[in-house]
Design a protein around this nucleic acid. Structure first.
Length: 575
RNA sequence: CGGGCCGUAGCGCAGUUUGGUAGCGCAUCUGCUUUGGGAGCAGAGGGUCGUCGGUUCGAAUCCGGCCGGCCCGACCA
């Protein structure tokens, strides 16, 4: 049943002025267009129009999940602590996991993700390989007690997510469904009207090895990515990305000790020595879980990727401010020559061809220049340690990488047996052996996607919804509601459009034309039908296309048919 | 958790330096006028000045504790 909406009955509190708390465009417009209101930091109420948008996205995601044979269910939002203790994540997740205690004193948490609960469910219900593969999904609230919520819906604490989990008896079966999910995610982005890029990523807290993120491209996006003409792309922090870099100094020289008073940063050092950052080497100190020092050497103009560091030396964390005193090492003058006894020196592979390093002397106010690996010091291990950057070489074709920013709207993971083993979820295989399920998980940030759509589709006046996500497809705007030539025409067109299966709103408020136009543009109905005295007397109404701003006069008699066809063709673009 | 800053009407803000009857714009309500791009005039309502305590004859204003929020960082989807 298509809805017939009256603006006078809708709770859409639009704001003329920008709320100060909103830094980015999607947050600002969602507030101004009366779609969301903040309840607490990172926690939002969805008002009627905003909720309609959310449901549009949910529906698209549902259709794509159903199409690949995943089945919808609903998992609990409040989850017992025991499951999380069994998987080890009760402790590992940290303060981001919101915990609570019930009146009996039992511990629970608010679900930040649902691997534990679904694995436990399937463990109890699925015994045989004959029942596999199995793919289940839900659309549910999630809660992650973010350190710093910001950017409205892009980085909330409470948010809506579609998450799917799949169970398999073989890696091949997992790969097949993973590919299906990834293809579905591409279609979801397309149907949401998002310019996007799938990128190689890191699996973070969720775990697993094979993973792809789907990035909606936006300058305001929190993630930086690199991509190549050949189609390869990655999150710059992805651990699997081995980039190629142009080496610095390749001519050997004698090592020399230089007095460098008050020099603490690479920028200061390079200026002092009269060279570029590129020709210096930065040493970052870390410690292993048992307290051993690790020195990571990277080119002076590059960032150490902590994910790669932790992969190269399992469990390593970079030193905090206070640690430097504890280890008695001079911050700002670290280097691989004569480090403290027992220090593991790990250097980035791209430094292998550099033979004259400008580095710290492990003594405050002194640096070394011309230090040569193998002659003046030894590197214990050469590893890939860098955050990727535009200009690096593509790992696939060698071409030059370009940079972009993106909003991560969805991610697919191959989990393997991490959770099924931890939670002892097994099935009986064809050969009679008990084996842990091989799992995958697949998430789409629903509310985040709503914000991402707005980041990509807006102008100075407001939101420019793609037809597929628009909370309302068409608005009929009578410029005089008490005029007995204008109002009857507007009402007739409104009812006719609704009867034709188009979601149509009539702005029946007793407001001035300017107010209605401004609200219509702000809210962003894809098509607006303006019914005014002038046009009606000539037998026409005006149709405004929100995206192009183009206005067309259309005879009243044919409006429903003409507009119906336009709506249908717009809908078809996103199917 | 570190650094910067802010809590005054539904929203955006002034007033705090120098203590002395709580203000402005928008929004809301009433009336008249206006009516194709956020109207005009006249009038009205709306405040424990985040909160608790201290100083003082007197506190939005000075001092302290607490709570909440924003921005930058570390972290993260």
């Amino acid at each position: 049943m298509t809805v017939a909406l009256r603006m006078s009955n809708l709770h859409v509190p639009t704001l003329k002025e920008d709320p100060t708390e909103a830094e980015i465009v999607s947050h600002r417009l969602l507030l101004r267009a009366g779609m969301i209101r903040k309840a607490a930091a990172g926690i939002y109420t969805f008002l009627p129009l905003g909720w309609r948008g959310v449901r549009k996205i949910e529906q698209i995601v549902r259709e794509e999940m159903d199409a690949i044979g995943s089945q919808e269910l609903l998992l609990p939002f409040v989850q017992p602590a025991e499951l999380w203790q069994d998987s080890g994540r009760w402790d590992a997740y940290g303060p981001e996991l919101a915990r609570l205690t019930d009146r009996q004193g039992r511990d629970f948490c608010l679900g930040p993700t649902h691997e534990e609960i679904i694995t436990t469910l399937v463990r109890g219900e699925v015994r045989s390989y004959r029942d596999l593969p199995l793919s289940l999904y839900q659309i549910n609230l999630k809660f992650r007690d973010e350190i710093r919520p910001r950017f409205g819906l892009l980085r909330g604490r409470e948010f809506i997510m579609k998450d799917a989990y799949s169970f398999h008896d073989t890696q091949e079966s997992l790969q097949e469904h993973y590919d299906d999910q990834a293809r579905a995610y591409g279609r979801i982005c397309e149907r949401l009207g998002l310019a996007f890029r799938p990128v190689e990523a890191d699996s973070g807290q969720i775990g697993g090895s094979v993973t792809t993120e789907f990035m909606a491209l936006a300058d305001t996006g929190e993630a930086a990515l690199v991509y190549c003409e050949c189609g390869w792309a990655a999150n710059v922090e992805a651990a699997g990305t081995v980039v190629r870099r142009t080496p610095g100094t390749v001519d050997p020289r004698a090592m020399e000790r230089v007095h460098t008073p008050e020099i603490r940063t690479i920028a200061e050092l390079a200026t002092f020595l009269g060279v570029s950052d590129h020709d210096t080497v930065k040493t970052m100190a870390g410690k292993t879980p048992d307290g051993a020092l690790v020195y990571f050497c990277v080119p002076g103009d590059r960032e150490l990727n902590p994910v790669k560091a932790a992969r190269a030396v399992p469990g390593v964390t970079l030193l905090e401010e206070d640690d430097f005193g504890a280890y008695d090492i001079p911050r700002g003058s670290l280097g691989p020559v004569d480090p403290p006894e027992g220090t593991l020196v790990v250097a980035d592979m791209s430094l292998r061809d550099e033979v004259a390093w400008g580095i710290g002397a492990n003594e405050a106010d002194y640096h070394l220049i011309g230090a040569m690996p193998g002659r003046d010091f030894e590197v214990s291990r050469w590893e890939d340690l860098l955050v990727a950057e535009p200009g690096d070489g593509c790992p696939v074709c060698g071409g030059e990488l370009k940079g972009a920013r993106g909003i991560e709207v969805s991610q697919v993971f191959q989990l393997g047996t991490k959770y099924s083993e931890a939670l002892d979820a097994t099935f009986t295989a064809e050969d009679g052996t008990e084996r842990p399920f091989i799992m995958g998980c697949y998430g789409v940030g629903i509310t985040r996607s709503l914000a991402a759509v707005i980041e990509q589709h807006h102008d100075d006046s407001g939101i420019v919804w793609p037809m597929s996500v628009a909370p309302v497809e068409v608005a009929v705007i009578p410029l005089a509601i008490d005029d007995d030539t204008v109002w009857p025409v507007a009402e007739r067109l409104w009812k006719g459009l609704v009867a034709a299966g188009i979601e149509t709103l009539i702005d029946d408020r007793d407001e001035r034309a300017g107010v209605k136009f401004a609200d219509a543009d702000l809210i962003g109905y894809p098509l607006q039908v303006v019914v005014g005295k002038r046009g009606v007397s000539g037998g026409v109404v005006e149709v405004k296309d929100r995206a192009t701003g183009e206005r067309t006069e259309i005879p009243i008699d044919t409006l429903v048919d003409t507009l119906g066809a336009r709506v249908e063709s717009e809908r078809a673009r996103y199917r």
